[in-house]
């Protein structure tokens, strides 16, 4: 019975680790110096389970405006497509109208991670808001 269960588990694991799954190696074992706290309001539980914003970093670019980088991990067993949009706000919390705030689509393989990034349109931007929506497939 036991070998049968082990074989079944191995078979299941092999089936779940479908084509396109990636293994990721990194030397990072603690948050970056530029890492900032972020709060996520979850409206799509499935998305939250499979696509996780692992770390959020924010720093000034050479040109002056802020740059934000978000590490997004796919903890699921399928290739995931998603779209994201960064909106920038000024110190008073008002959204800055910008041609850079557009929806961008990307994808991340199972077990993999990707970095989504954005640069603020002007030096006046003080903070950002990120929206992520996953594809149904």
């Amino acid at each position: 019975m036991k070998p049968a269960r082990i074989a079944l588990t191995a078979l299941l694991a092999a089936a779940l680790a479908a084509c396109g799954t990636v293994n990721t190696t990194s030397t990072r074992n603690r948050p970056a110096d530029t890492a900032v706290d972020a709060k996520t309001r979850v409206n799509d539980l499935l998305q939250q389970i499979f696509l996780t914003a692992k770390e959020v970093r924010m720093s000034r670019t050479k040109g002056g405006p802020y740059e934000v980088q978000v590490d997004v991990e796919n903890n699921g067993f399928e290739y995931r497509s998603f779209a994201y949009r960064f909106d920038w706000v000024d110190a008073a919390g008002n959204v800055l109208a910008s041609q850079t705030s557009v929806w961008k689509s990307t994808n991340v393989p199972a077990g993999g991670a990707t970095v989504i990034r954005a640069v603020a349109p002007t030096d006046d931007a003080a903070d950002f808001r990120l929206q992520i929506r996953r594809a149904d497939t």
Partner: peptide
């Protein structure tokens, strides 16, 4: 839109 956003971000980032 994605292309123009990428170009504008790069211009702002480099400060050229």
């Amino acid at each position: 839109l994605k292309a123009s956003s990428g170009m504008l971000e790069s211009l702002a980032e480099t400060g050229v």
